[in-house]
Design a binder for these strands. Structure first.
Lengths: 244, 244
DNA sequence: CGAATCACTCGAACAGCGTACGAGGGAAGC
DNA sequence: GCTTCCCTCGTACGCTGTTCGAGTGATTCG
């Protein structure tokens, strides 16, 4: 194995053998780590906590996983594995992209801790590759060519990730405070009111559009609106024979 | 001050007085923190390191800043402060949104550590508010109404953040490895080759479109392509009188 | 069948982290 | 001159990721 320029679980050979009686194993470690992350966010995962949860010593984990970074990389790919990407024949490309985007958004919202990890190193795991394979198939079948394929793929990723990030920020804040969205909004109201002089146009818009009734629906609406406009733009681009 | 449901620097009164000789001060702490973050990422910022850099004891910082979380919140808003959002009269809405999106992308790429922070709590700082104010002005002037305003704003944010995230992931990985993009690509090549059987369609696409020549340009092209398609979609929506 | 090998577990220890606390200094106001 | 208040900081606590080396028990080999 040649010397590697940068480090990643995926670029190392898998652990060599598999014998003996039931002990710790990589998959179960990753699963447990995800449970901790889902429950308490990044701060909820420590090697010691993970160890005791598995009925093992903290340092035993290091036999199966090189370090915490590797473990997180494995967890990221596991999240990507939850995203379904249709095959080209299944539906039209518009619906297919919509399915992929929705799946991505849901997966990120189920595991919001990935957001902070996606910006730190490229995803190279098997599930990431599978997504790449499917995306290429989907988009070439749709009529995109050359670098357009990766551009469009990046657009969808960006929309899903970006939308989920804003939503996750509010969700984690309310969860941490142990309150509902409506309570948070009520709490925030007087503070925004006090700032209204500095932000007059935002303030009037806000007062005409307060919709704290169904926050989940609001986030979803926002996501869908953006996705549809984005797909409209892509459709127009294809229809116009890629003008620019 | 009433009991607060969730915690944020912006919801607390500012420190009360300002006397005496030149000592530590909040702005300079935040600036120094950003320098550490820019240089070495999230891991580069510790209270002790920040203290010594400012020629002070680590715990002195706690007089000016409640805790590390607060400090990060202040830093986030400082990043948002670097983003220029045009006033409605300045140009057409399409160009204005383009300026905002580009500014946002650049700011995030200058300070990629924000990516991991944006998903953790809502941004409430003065610069965030200023962006909100300007965005609303811009979009209402463009003809968007009601919740469309926030939807469109969210779209732009999502695109800038999402694009920057992917780019930052590769950038930090190459930086950490101390190599160039081209070297990383060469390194990765044989590994991708080995996986080609599992991802045939991705592989053929990849081989027909290898463009490692100017990575910076590639990222920017990708960002611009997506932004233009997205603005096309919005323009069509406005032109069609908001069909759905 | 005994010995050697190998996969695996784990306690102890180290350096570093965020931060609570309380003692202290030194200018400002009475 | 004394009190008050802003501000600094050394110490200490409990936590973190990770290294190291000793230990265990099943498998394999001679």
């Amino acid at each position: 194995m040649a010397e590697l320029f940068f480090d990643s679980v995926w670029l190392r050979p898998p652990s060599r053998k598999r014998t003996g009686q039931p002990t710790l194993d990589r998959d179960q470690i990753v699963r447990a780590a995800m449970e901790l992350l889902d429950a308490d966010g990044p701060a909820g995962l420590s090697m010691r906590r993970l160890g005791t949860r598995l009925g093992a010593g903290a340092t035993s984990l290091y036999w199966h996983v090189a370090n915490k970074d590797d473990l997180l990389e494995l967890a990221i790919d596991e999240v990507l594995g939850e995203i379904y990407v249709p095959e080209p024949g299944d539906t039209g490309w518009r619906i297919a992209l919509s399915v992929m985007a929705n799946g991505m958004r849901s997966a990120i919202l189920r595991h919001p801790w990935v957001i902070g990890l996606l910006g730190t190193k490229p995803t190279l795991g098997p599930n990431a590759m599978r997504m790449g394979e499917r995306s290429v198939a989907l988009l070439t079948a749709a009529g995109f060519t050359g670098m357009e394929v990766s551009h469009v793929s990046a657009m969808i990723h960006a929309h899903a990730l970006g939308s989920a990030t804003t939503e996750a920020a509010v969700a984690t804040a309310t969860k941490r405070a142990g309150r509902t969205f409506a309570e948070m909004a009520d709490e925030l109201e007087p503070i925004l009111e006090r700032l209204s002089a500095d932000n007059p146009r935002y303030d009037t818009w806000r007062k005409e559009n307060v919709v704290i009734a169904e926050p989940e629906k609001m986030w979803h609406d926002s996501f869908v609106f953006g996705l549809e406009r984005l797909l409209d733009g892509l459709e127009a681009w294809l229809a116009a024979g890629k003008p620019a």
